[in-house]
């Protein structure tokens, strides 16, 4: 109940103060260049990695990227740059 409450407050504050959502609410920022690049910031770790599927842990839930011929170009804490052919980006909420 308390977590929901703080979430609500944050949401309200960002709306009112015009702040970027990813900073305030620990949301992932995903940048895609066509189908070939996907750049994900603010992730919490790599769960699974294969040629056709990458699963990332987020603050809330998971992010599933599906496609072909995936190569992780760079991995940094909280940042990942993925190369290949991206078909789908799916949010999984538990």
């Amino acid at each position: 109940m308390a977590k929901n409450w703080s979430q609500l407050v944050r949401n309200w504050m960002t709306h009112k103060m015009d702040l970027p959502h990813d900073v305030m609410m620990d949301l992932p920022r995903i940048t895609m260049i066509g189908q070939i690049h996907i750049y994900i910031e603010n992730h919490q770790g790599l769960l699974a990695f294969s040629d056709s599927e990458v699963r990332l842990l987020l603050k809330q839930g998971q992010l599933l990227v599906k496609g072909q011929a995936f190569v992780i170009k760079t991995v940094l804490p909280e940042e990942i740059l993925l190369e290949g052919k991206v078909d789908q980006v799916i949010y999984i909420n538990d």
Partner: peptide
């Protein structure tokens, strides 16, 4: 292992399955 390396600040690139 990759997560661990990431946390330790090891730069890793061109990861391929």
């Amino acid at each position: 292992l990759i997560n661990r390396l990431m946390r330790d600040g090891v730069k890793v690139w061109n990861v391929k399955r």
